[in-house]
Simulated assay, not measured.
Amino acid sequence: MRQVIAGVVGLALVGTAATAALVMWPVGQEPAKIELAGDVQRGAYLARASGCIACHTNFEDGGAPLAGGAPLETDFGTFYPPNLTTDAQHGIGGWTVEQFAMAVRQGISPEGEPYYPTFTYPFYADFSDQDIADLWAAFQTVAPAAESAPVHEATFPFDQRWGLKLWRAAYLSDPQTEPVEGKSETWNRGRELVRGATHCGACHTGRNLAGARVASAVFAGNDALPGGNKAPSILPEDLAERGWTVANLSYALQSGVTPSGDVFGGSMGEVVQNGTRFLSKDDLRAMATYLLDSNLAPEDEIASIPASGPVLD
């Protein structure tokens, strides 16, 4: 009996030690000093493309731009995007550009804690130092909002943030935004946007029981989005079968109007309203070209797509 008790105690001690080691295990890499001058307009454009305004503004409750707080209900609990305004206490006004870079590209807070993957940082991992400098410059123009986003309401054991270190080790992967040799410049620009900034795979890819994207089902659709929404397959053959072309998909991403004359609703409607409608004609064409795995469409096919300027507020 004593041997059994000793064994149980030993296992408990080992488990406690392992947990303590995991809690103390540092994640992320300290970024190099970023001293590049940022372009506010380019940063504002990238922020729109990346969904920063859409996710970090509580439009339903009339929240201030980028002040956070809009609830995201998932199977793991309800999560609240944080305040990204220049308020030093409640937002990111006290951060450095390097801390900002670590958060955006690695999903690590200034305190060294991992962010929940409801934040789409895995898609931003390939952002360059210039991208970060531009984003940072744009965020410095945002008015401070002295309000904190609600605390996440994650259920046990997902409320144990140290467990995210195991999740990252198992599921974090490169967004694969690098250009592909032999493809057109437009196709590669589309790949960079779709797999990176606009993070289409965040919604249009199914998830496993751990909430990670299923690597073998990228863009194959997702019937279990937060809030009961669904995202259809955006694989090239499925898009083509549903009548999408480079021309009408480009236009839909700008206007929200589908080829049938209907409009996008739900999450996709929000994506267009707060994000893709601000993209340039060339970038909309690039996204459609990549998604349809198409050759570059003639200019006159998409001449009706208006160009739009970047705005952050």
Rank of each mutant, 00 (worst) to 15 (best):
Q140G: 15
Q140N: 15
V142W: 05
V142D: 06
A143N: 02
A146S: 14
S148K: 15
S148W: 11
S148N: 13
S148H: 13
A149D: 10
A149R: 02
A149W: 02
A149T: 03
V151P: 00
H152N: 15
H152I: 00
H152W: 14
A154T: 05
A154D: 03
A154F: 02
A154G: 08
T155S: 12
T155C: 04
T155H: 10
T155F: 02
F156A: 15
Q160C: 10
R161F: 05
R161H: 05
R161V: 08
W162Y: 15
G163A: 15
G163I: 14
G163H: 05
L164Q: 02
L164T: 01
K165A: 13
K165I: 13
K165M: 13
K165V: 15
L166R: 08
L166F: 14
L166V: 13
W167H: 10
W167S: 02
R168Q: 08
A169K: 10
A170C: 05
A170M: 12
Y171H: 15
Y171R: 12
Y171K: 15
Y171N: 10
Y171E: 09
S173C: 13
S173V: 14
D174A: 15
D174T: 10
D174R: 14
P175F: 12
P175D: 11
Q176W: 00
Q176D: 11
T177F: 09
T177L: 12
P179C: 02
P179N: 00
V180N: 05
V180C: 01
G182I: 10
G182M: 13
G182S: 08
S184D: 12
S184P: 08
E185Y: 04
E185N: 08
T186M: 13
T186W: 04
W187T: 03
N188W: 04
R189W: 12
R189L: 15
G190D: 07
G190A: 13
G190Q: 09
R191T: 10
R191S: 11
E192I: 06
E192S: 12
L193A: 03
L193T: 06
L193W: 09
V194Q: 01
V194G: 01
A197Q: 11
T198Y: 00
H199Q: 07
C200L: 00
A202V: 09
C203N: 06
H204Q: 06
H204G: 01
G206Q: 07
R207I: 08
R207M: 09
N208I: 00
N208Q: 00
G211S: 07
G211L: 08
G211R: 06
A212Q: 02
R213M: 12
R213D: 00
V214G: 00
V214F: 00
S216K: 11
A217F: 05
A217H: 11
V218R: 07
V218C: 03
V218E: 09
V218Y: 07
F219P: 06
A220W: 07
G221P: 08
G221T: 02
N222C: 07
N222I: 05
N222Q: 03
A224Y: 09
A224C: 03
A224R: 14
L225E: 05
P226W: 11
P226T: 11
P226A: 13
G227S: 02
G227Q: 03
G228C: 07
G228R: 04
G228E: 04
G228M: 05
N229H: 13
N229C: 07
N229I: 06
K230C: 00
A231M: 02
P232H: 01
